[in-house]
Design a binder for these strands. Structure first.
Lengths: 251, 251
DNA sequence: CGGCAAATTGAGCATTGTCAATGTCTGTGG
DNA sequence: CCACAGACATTGACAATGCTCAATTTGCCG
């Protein structure tokens, strides 16, 4: 088993699945300057209205993006897991239109905005791979619009749980449809456009019906097909063929 | 007043606001191969599940993207206006995760997927501008998640109307907060996660309270500040500083 | 053991959905 | 020029999903 020489090692492998890179592309990506940073849960990584100066790769932990309405209601618009880029938007947009906050303790590799901009101009193949990354984010946002717009509470939560199951599986953080979901019910509510009370009732209902198993913040899905059906979940929108970061093979 | 020599003339100007292009960038963009196409209302431009082979620039008319849940409920996830690229996603994603359909009669300039991919590799500055385009789309999706997730019916519709007012104004299709919105109430319902019946009631209510004026499919906003307040609308998410396509100045 | 955040539960309510009828407008064919 | 069809808008009565408020329990940590 090889040890990654660079924090971007896995990113490189993911990118190479999308399109071939040449040696200089690889070197440039691996040589990207970055600052390691550890943030505690609930710490803000980006604030709406700021001029972004960096983008971060999540090495471990979870983070989420959210917006707050004028009336003070919060809506989580995405949740990010290890291997995801956070706020790659910030490399090209001049002002942050949303907040990014740590969900659990996170280790981040923060890359200066200028370095990313230089990289994509000098190495358009790498830029294309990064662009693809943000396009997949966009696809997930679209599915979330559908989720909060057109599914009832039960399907909505089931859908969220299905999405995590698949995404976490891809990066090796779920086994047998069992994973840790470090979100409070209030956060689940903010992600699904519901109230915490109702989230609780729905979770209880799903558990009662044997569709999920809950222990602390761990979620188990005993019958994937059944939950998938309840959720109306179809994974096309995750573009897994272009998302997978191939895991290190055991020797 | 100059006549655009190419359908990409206005796109070029928009892109040049984002970052300087050199002469070869400009030439490459203007020389992009395309096929003009006129589509009637409700015609599908892209279908979920297809392998995309082109992206389209809207020259005139409106189009929208939507997804349909397994239960058959439809959710519109974005509406596009002249000057927008439709499905630039298709240049890099291998499978369409949503449908694109004409709202009104549309004139499109359809660009082969391969031509776009070649362009962004050979002219990364142009690629960056296109990437920015999709990032702004992403920002709009996020706001739509908030809209359907955390606003009540009245604010939700008001927000949609505010968004159109600003976007259409930018491309010269709205004057004095007055514009044509070629959507049925059923489509408005699908865009806001409501039912057509309720959309009707809300529209009637907004009109009764003097917040909007309606004549056929035309919307007038007599008091922008008032509607903005009802909607909780803040235009940051449109990234207008990077979206504006400068209009031809009168001589 | 006290203190706190989070989860759970109950009771009542209201925003929004459902169903169904009726009205309005537009274009078309006679 | 009029009757009619069809799509869309409007309205009413009623139902229900999900919200609010408020209390209680559970789990965790010092």
């Amino acid at each position: 088993m090889t040890t990654p020489q660079s924090v971007f090692e896995l990113t490189l492998r993911k990118f190479e699945m999308r399109a071939p890179l040449d040696e200089s592309d690889r070197e440039a990506l691996l040589a990207l300057p970055y600052r390691l940073q550890t943030v505690e849960p609930s710490v803000y990584i980006v604030r709406e209205g700021e001029r972004p100066d960096r983008s971060c790769l999540i090495l471990s932990g979870f983070a989420f993006r959210h917006k707050v309405t004028l009336e003070g209601a919060r809506q989580i618009v995405s949740v990010h897991i290890p291997g995801d880029f956070l706020d790659l938007d910030g490399a090209l947009l001049n002002v942050a239109d949303h907040n990014v906050q740590a969900l659990s303790r996170c280790e981040l590799a923060c890359i200066p905005r200028a370095a990313i901009r230089d990289l994509i101009l000098a190495h358009p193949r790498v830029g294309t791979a990064m662009w693809t990354e943000t396009l997949i984010d966009g696809s997930m946002f679209r599915e979330w619009v559908v989720n909060v717009g057109r599914r009832d509470a039960r399907s909505r939560i089931a859908h969220l749980l299905c999405e995590f199951a698949r995404r976490l599986d891809v990066v090796g953080l779920a086994a047998q449809y069992r994973y840790e979901l470090p979100m409070t019910q209030e956060q689940l509510a903010d992600a699904t456009g519901l109230t915490p009370v109702h989230v609780n009732r729905v979770l209880m209902g799903l558990a009662r019906d044997g569709l999920i198993e809950r222990t602390k913040r761990f979620i188990g899905i005993p019958d994937w097909e059944a939950l998938r059906r309840v959720a109306g979940f179809s994974e096309t929108y995750l573009h897994l063929d272009q998302l997978s970061s191939p895991r290190l093979k055991p020797a």
